[in-house]
Write a protein that binds this DNA or RNA. Structure first.
Lengths: 222, 222
DNA sequence: AACGCAGATGACAGAATGCTGATAGGGTGT
DNA sequence: ACACCCTATCAGCATTCTGTCATCTGCGTT
């Protein structure tokens, strides 16, 4: 389950990212409104957490541009100004829910789950690439219909790569997403992880792009 | 049987809550319209008691949003203004019954029983997964037809997992739902609870997703 | 063909996670 | 006051996870 977070406050953004990742989401974060808009316009997300008080392009403007371009993913709006008017404005612009700051991360998680469920995030939570299937709701990976027992880190790796299928993901990015505080210097933890996953999946799902990163090929010609 | 009460008057709310709990319902109370809407939208209730004269989001607006989002639980409307017009409006918005203030708690109980009975015959109150059966109306869990004696906490755990079957539920979320507030990561209460439930059910209903949470697999019938 | 280096693999140990039985405090009904 | 059930906590145990190291492998360049 991939979620986009657009929030300029470093602290809040980090908090949200940590909480979402702890809940098993794959998180893209963005501080700038422009970059955020671009990502939401071009990538596919299960949901978006959108701050209204952004420098540059305003949150509401972003939302309106998405909606008028036909992007229908559920959007949860954050704002410091908790006025009723603003809430109405947000809903009118096409927001699915609204959360005034300050908020508890737990509430953010609950509301996010709610809007994802409401917009049918259930049905579209299975990604199939070749013989490998990823069920995000059950957090389960199967090859030829047989469930594979993956450790948390292994699952995160596979889901991240499969969700970003068709794109070369740099090792650096993977390492950051796996966020294990431990690796500092020249660690080959990612490589070890990839090896473990490959053995368990016994398939050619993950390709190596020497010098660049890893790639799960596009699943669109099936 | 879980019931949601949305009413801003403290006195009335407390009265209703006391009466309902005395009748064996599990009651969530909420004074704010927004929070109430959110709960009704995200949680599962056997019925809702909804006051119309709420500050913030109006009762009718709440009801309409639920209905247009497909939430079908029976709703009993309360109002101080006992006009015929308003009654029609409420019914149009999707209310199942209407009770003008002031009222006797006995009448509230009777009408609540009535609308629950009326809409409760539907199949959605029984969930079967494998050999395990959850009857939400009777708040009873059976394995191979044999009723299992569960404590309140145990029942909440099982019902929550079964209602959310097919989805990995994080320990954190479970702990919150069991709403014993003093949960930190320093407690393994959830694990203990799961262990007890497993022993009582003597079945493999609840799977562990190490590092993520617990999962009751899909029952293929939803 | 040789070489250098990014990546792959196997082994290992400390850490993390979950399970279980025992215990005790709290609440309820008698 | 007493007995009983429920439930939170603790401690110990078993298992799994995961980063690191040492050592290969093989790709791509020279």
């Amino acid at each position: 389950m991939r979620v986009l977070v657009i929030e300029d406050d470093d602290r809040i953004r980090a908090d949200i990212q940590a909480a979402l990742e702890a809940s098993g989401y794959v998180v893209d974060v963005e501080a700038s409104g422009e970059e955020g808009w671009f990502l939401g316009d071009t990538e596919t997300y299960a949901a978006v957490v959108l701050d209204l008080g952004l420098p540059g392009m305003d949150g509401l403007a972003i939302l309106k541009r998405w909606r008028s371009a036909g992007r229908a993913m559920p959007v949860l709006i954050l704002t410091a100004r908790g006025t009723w008017n603003e809430r109405v404005e947000g809903i009118d612009a096409g927001a699915d829910d609204y959360l005034p700051k300050p908020f508890h991360v737990e509430e953010l998680l609950a509301r996010l789950r709610a809007i994802i469920r409401r917009t049918g995030g259930n049905s579209s939570s299975v990604i199939t690439i070749g013989e490998t299937e990823l069920d995000e709701r059950q957090m389960r990976v199967s090859v030829r219909g047989v469930p594979v027992n993956l450790s948390p880190q292994e699952y995160r790796l596979v889901s991240y790569l499969m969700i970003h299928n068709g794109r070369v993901v740099p090792q650096q990015e993977l390492a950051e997403h796996l966020q294990s505080v431990h690796f500092e210097r020249e660690s080959n933890a990612v490589e070890v992880l990839v090896a473990r996953v490959r053995r368990k999946l016994s398939s050619v799902l993950i390709e190596t792009r020497r010098g660049f990163g890893y790639l799960v090929p596009d699943g669109k010609n099936e």
